[in-house]
Design a protein around this nucleic acid. Structure first.
Lengths: 235, 235
DNA sequence: GTCTATACGGGGATAGAC
DNA sequence: GTCTATCCCCGTATAGAC
């Protein structure tokens, strides 16, 4: 795209990218997630992407734009893969299971995404990612709230449960599990590689169970003790 | 203390400090929490503390030592005030209530501490704060695990609950509530000042309730619907 | 103990050749 | 489009006067 190499606009465009630009974005995503925006240097990204550091300016104008582009590309990718929308309507255990499963999938396949978005929240108060967080909220929080409200109406959820608070508590579990890794490792008394995929899955099952029991009026049919309810094989 | 102005050792000492050193520490705590280690500059800290920037080197040697000192002082302060050890033995609802209350108190009175520790975890993998996180784990996680295990023995807690996972889920709630503020605000549809103390208290009550119901065999006496169990008015 | 002045390095960004 | 060379600012840290 020789005619519009350096878009002067503000919103980064997730356009057809050249191989070099792609390499830059991949390297940047990796490094931004690992070290955060300020600690990651342009030169470091260039080295990792095996391109000249001046190229980053040719393609992205400046460091901030590169960062924003990484962020949007990430969420765009997540959306395309439908990772965020695993929550379809249904009864409360189904919806909560779907939401936790969506989280798990996202953490599993895009471990950097979670860190990146969280960093963005506490580093910049989500200033660079308002739209993206909105998207996630819509895909995760809102279905949870709806399902819980429905559950309250049909009597399966305790009437004194605040649906939005409950949604937060539900989602908080897996997020914290991954983000507070050092603390979790300490508690679980495990090594640096602890949250292996199987551990993540185990905690995910716990989290869904925990949340369902937390809001239900009567203990629902246990899904983890003897036989698991037919786990809808994702994808 | 003219004889030992600049301790050459590595471990920062939470010693009797001069007024200037105190001012520096206060300013540093504030700024490190707000912007993180790398974005905060020595000169910025000096300006805020109203001292000359060279003084920081006189007292603390370098930026990293200053940072570590801030971290230790913080946890030392928390420990002295007993903020971390609100968890005394008792039945499950009591212990969980105590833990959540301890978290709430800490978030309320030392809002920077939580951000600082969390930043340290995701920025540096807790490299500067191993001991401190260990301390918190001991004061928060372990009592929770013990209480839950006891509950399993005496039949008040479901036998299929993993006590360590449950402890993580319990603690995750308030932590996430504060750390993911931008997302929470979006969901709650509130302004930038949202988590006011009263909101924090409301969510804390929810969190304790959520966790207790999540692990109990039978729905315990509801503590939030009609009358609140005598909230121990913490000092 | 506190201040001024400054060395030093590194990171973001640009100019311009090819 | 890609590369070399370089500018400039700013942040850490030090030297040394007072």
């Amino acid at each position: 795209m020789p005619s519009k190499p350096r878009p002067p606009g503000r919103e980064p465009e997730p356009e057809p990218t050249s191989p070099a630009a792609d390499a830059i974005l991949n390297a940047a995503e990796e490094l931004f997630a690992r070290s955060g925006f300020e600690r990651t240097t342009i030169k470091e990204i260039a080295r990792r992407a095996k391109v000249n550091s001046a190229l980053l300016y040719y393609y992205f104008g400046d460091k901030t734009t590169l960062y924003r582009t990484v962020l949007t590309r990430l969420v765009l990718g997540l959306r395309q893969q439908g990772r965020l929308s695993a929550a379809r309507p249904g009864d409360v255990p189904q919806v909560i299971g779907g939401i936790v499963e969506a989280q798990r999938q996202m953490l599993l396949r895009h471990p950097r995404a979670a860190v990146l978005l969280f960093r963005e929240m506490i580093d910049h108060n989500a200033a660079h990612a308002h739209g993206l967080i909105q998207e996630i909220a819509a895909e995760l929080f809102r279905p949870a709230c709806l399902a819980i409200e429905n559950g309250k109406r049909d009597g399966t959820v305790r009437p004194d449960v605040d649906s939005r608070f409950a949604a937060i508590s539900t989602i908080a579990q897996l997020a914290y599990f991954m983000l507070a890794r050092p603390a979790v490792r300490l508690l679980m008394d495990t090594g640096a590689d602890y949250p292996a995929p199987s551990d993540l899955a185990a905690f995910g099952r716990h989290a869904a169970d925990f949340a369902v029991h937390a809001i239900s009026v009567a203990p629902p049919r246990s899904r983890t003790t003897k036989k698991r309810a037919g786990k809808e094989s994702g994808r």
